[in-house]
Design a protein around this nucleic acid. Structure first.
Lengths: 109, 109
DNA sequence: ACTTACGGTAAGCAAATACTTACCATTAAT
DNA sequence: ATTAATGGTAAGTATTTGCTTACCGTAAGT
C-alpha cells in the first residue's frame, strides 16, 4: 500500500477527518482531541493510529501527554499524487487524441 | 457533505482507486473497466456511481455503452482542500507561536 | 505512598459497506 | 425478428471497520 493510498484511506472516514481538522488549529493531546467528538477516547486512539501510519500526523510525548500534530509529509504525498495524476491524465488524453487523428487521416486516404 | 468529503470518501476504497486509476489511461466503457478487476460487473457499477457522485468521473453515453471519464472538478476540489488546509495550518501555527512568545515575555517581566 | 489523569491495546459487538446473484431495459448485431 | 452485448438496480449476504467496555502501564499531583 503506497503512502498516498494509506492517506486516502485514512481521510475516507468522517471521524478521522474531524480529528485531522481539529489538529489544523494546533497540536493537541489525546484528551483534547477527544473532547467534543461523539466517540469514546479509545476510538480516538485507534483513529490516531491510522492517521499516524498514513503519515498525516506525528506523535510527540510530553510527560504523560501524547501530543499529536499535523505531518506535512502525508499531506504533500496526497497533493503530489493528485497533481501528477491529473498531469498524466492530460498527457494520456493528448496522445490518445493524436492517435485517433492519425487513424482518421489514414482511413480517409 | 462537502465536495471534497465525498471525494475523500470515494477514494478511500481500494477498488474505487483502481477504477479511478484505470480511467487515467483513457475514457472507458463499463465492461472495459470491469475487465481485470477482481469484482463482478455490478460491483463496478456501484463503485462508478459513488465516484460520479463525488464528481471524480463523468458519464457519457455512446449507443449501448456508458463511457466513464475523469472529472477535473472533484480532483481539483481535493487539491484545493489540501492546499488551503496546509496554508491555514501554517497560519494557525504562526500566530500560535507568536502568542506563546508574548506570554513568555510578559511572564519574564 | 496513594490517587488521579493520561492514553494505548484487546476482545467482542454493532453498524456500515462491499459484494454476489438475479433481474430488467436498451441498443447492436445477425 | 431473434439473439448478443451492455449495464443499471434490487435484495440479500458477507466482510470490514468503527465503536464500546475492560484492562493495564506510566506520569503527575497531593
Amino acid at each position: 500500500m503506497s503512502a498516498s493510498s494509506k492517506a486516502f484511506n485514512a481521510l475516507g472516514d468522517p471521524t478521522r477527518r474531524a480529528i485531522f481538522e481539529k489538529l489544523q488549529e494546533r497540536p493537541l493531546a489525546v484528551v483534547d482531541i477527544s473532547a467534543g467528538l461523539p466517540v469514546s477516547r479509545p476510538a480516538v486512539s485507534q483513529h490516531l493510529k491510522v492517521l499516524k501510519e498514513a503519515k498525516l500526523i506525528t506523535l510527540r510525548t510530553d510527560g504523560n501527554k501524547n501530543i499529536y500534530e499535523l505531518n506535512r509529509e502525508g499531506i504533500l504525498a496526497m497533493r503530489n499524487y493528485l497533481d501528477k495524476f491529473w498531469d498524466d491524465a492530460l498527457a494520456n488524453f493528448k496522445t490518445l487524441a493524436e492517435n485517433t487523428e492519425k487513424e482518421n487521416n489514414t482511413a480517409n486516404k
